[in-house]
Structures are given as C-alpha cells and as structure tokens.
Amino acid sequence: MTHQTNHFTSKVQQYTEQIRAGDLASLSSLFDVTGVRLVRYATGITGNQHDGEDIVQAVLTKVATDPNLILDRDCSWAYLLRMTRNAAVDLLRRQSRSKVSDKGTLKSVVVQTEYRLENDTKQKIWVAMNRLPREQREVILLKIWEQMTFEEVATILQLAPGTVASRYRYAINKLRHSLASISVERSQHEIRS
C-alpha cells in the first residue's frame, strides 16, 4: 500500500468515524476529500459526468446512512472506490438492458461521450479512453488517475494482479493506436520547429 493511499485511507476512515458518531458535518469534509476523485472515477467508467455525479451522490448517501459499510473493511478508501465502481457498472448494465431492441438483439453499447473538453487533444484522449472496453478502462483509471499499484487495483476490482497488468498493457496499446494522430501532429510540430 503506497504512502499516498495510506494517508487518504486514514482521512476517509477518520471522517467516516465522525459521521458514525453522529457528526453529520464531517460529511462535508468527506466530500471535500473524496468528491473530486470519486466523480472523476465514476465519470471515467460511465463516460458521462452527470451519471458519475449521480453515482457519487448515491454512494456517499449510503455511506452517511450506514458508515459501517466502509469502516468494517481493511481499506475504507479502496472499498469506497469499489462501491463507486459497482454502482457505475450496475448503471451501465441497466442502460445496456434498456437498449435491447424489439427484436431481442442487443444493440452495441457505445458509452456516450457527453463530456466535452475544449482542448482538441484532450477531447481525442477522452474519445480514445471511451473506446476501450470497460474492463480495460477501469484499470487505466485506477492505475493512472489514482496512482495505484497493480496489487491495489486488483484488490478493488477483485482480480489477480497478473490479470490487471495484462489488461493495462492491452489498454495502453489500444490507446497508442487511437492516439496515433496526436503522435503524427507531434512529429510534424517537431519537423517544423
């Protein structure tokens, strides 16, 4: 467990214990500490910020009403991420069920890239990320955005670290292909300069 994750976990633990003791004001602190990261993670999985925020709201409400949900775990921050991930995956499943056509065939579920970025390069990265299979995307999110080790990612996703590492490699290679245009632009820029 990294020092960063340890520090974060102790903060999450502290605020959750205060919530359990009846101090609802600690919920603001819990949101301040975890809100950005949870929304980013949920948005990354669903591909839609609105859905991501709904998920975080539902998860934090659940934690506030029953703090033991995460206090009884070995790593409360990891469990909070897992709750968020499970809620996001549930939402994607519900959305995919609702896309079953009248003939009973499942339409290809493409995660809607409703998150609009002003920077063209970032928009390309966002689209490339959303083209990844969900299983690979969530590994990338935890590994790069949350700076976690393969072992920590494996704990959250309940997978073997080897599986996580291979998903990461596949994802990086796919991103390399998808972001080839950025690489070409960079080369042209280097030639011009």
Partner: peptide
C-alpha cells in the same frame, strides 16, 4: 507519454458546483 496524456485528462474532470449541496440535502 500516453500515461501523461491520460493523467492530464483526469485533471480536467471536476464535480459540478451543485453536487455538494445536492449530496448534503439528500443525506439530510
């Protein structure tokens, strides 16, 4: 380079300002 690009994207995603009051009122 890919990791840096993905990381920079992560820094762009911020919760909307209405999320915090929505969560607090929902919990209340």
């Amino acid at each position: 380079e890919i990791e840096k690009l993905v990381e920079s994207l992560g820094q762009e995603i911020r919760p909307s300002s209405s999320l915090r009051p929505a969560i607090l009122s929902s919990i209340k």
